[in-house]
Amino acid sequence: MSRETSIADPAEKRVWDALETVMDPEIPLISTVELGLIAGVEVDGAAATVSITPTFAACPALDLIRSQIREAVTAAGFSPVSVETVYDPPWTSDRVSESGRRKLKEFGLAPPKRMNGRCMQPQDLVGVACPYCDSTQTVLESAFGPTLCRSIHYCDGCRQSFEHFKPVT
């Protein structure tokens, strides 16, 4: 079951609560749930299975995230805990929650534009609002940044460069 629907089952809710404490190692303000990484949770007695849908195929943090999920869900009283990688549903930046977007901005990263299923186009990287001063007088410096999910921009408003969590669809 995904987080978008209300979680009636108390055991399943305990797993989701545990997952909300597992932070993205590269952006430690935002949880794996807010990032949209969790594709589903299944509980069968004391056993729990968590499915994760990776942001990028080459995400180097994935092994760490997997083991942190295992630890957190085990600490919540489940055993055995298995973490499976799935590609269906595919992760897109639209999976980042509203609270996730707010926290990205607090972290100094411009949040990704909501694509609503539309394909990303080069113009989606133009005029990205600066996370510091909200100006849209900004230019794309590089579509690739310090991690796979970030691009680099420059703000003419406050005259500094900033990073942007890229739209990926």
Binding site: F56, Y87, D88, K166
Partner: peptide, 15 residues
């Protein structure tokens, strides 16, 4: 299924 996931990252290479 895998490929549907990879298409999003591929667009940046093409761009």
């Amino acid at each position: 299924k895998l490929v549907r996931k990879l298409r999003g990252e591929q667009k940046y290479h093409v761009m």
